[in-house]
Amino acid sequence: MSEYKTVFGGLNDFTPGGVDAIDDNPKNYVFSNVFDVASRSAPYERVAVGKNLEYVIEVLRAEGQSPWYACAHDEFALCMDGEVEIHLVKPDDADVLVDPDSEGAVVLDEVPDGRKMGRIVLRRGHQALLPGGAAYRFEAGAPAVILTQTIQGPATVERWAEICQSESRPAA
């Protein structure tokens, strides 16, 4: 008997399932695929693939160097394919950089002044804390895929009609 093979998929290796609507509207399920979305995104677009009131899950195609981001609250980054480096900085004046009451990630115009917090390298399946009040930047030598747990903010991109299944489609 063969060993079990765990299928994780990837940017160049994904086979989406689908919604077979029996008596339903397939749009109700907001069905998409992380790798499909990343394959059609520009580097570091933060495309929402899940939304629950103010909270979102975003997909980022990591490729090259991202801008610096800052966020008032914790976020998390899960690497779903490839390898991603994260650089963290504690800004000298985080409250000026980002309103402490704001939600979601903010793109910074320049490298923030502050203390270097550290560096993390994620590979597939690794999840990192992006601590609230910190600034961070991603870097990937080859295309990779990040899933974030965060709150909708100015950097979040919504294009549901482009990424989601609209017609009933039994999985092949």
């Binding site: 998929g9 989406p16 919604v19 077979d20 008596d23 399920y29 069905f31």
Partner: peptide
Amino acid sequence: GKPRSRIVMRAGDVACMP
């Protein structure tokens, strides 16, 4: 309990249950 949909989810798929 009337059937509405059958959803197959594979690696990387995202879906919302209403």
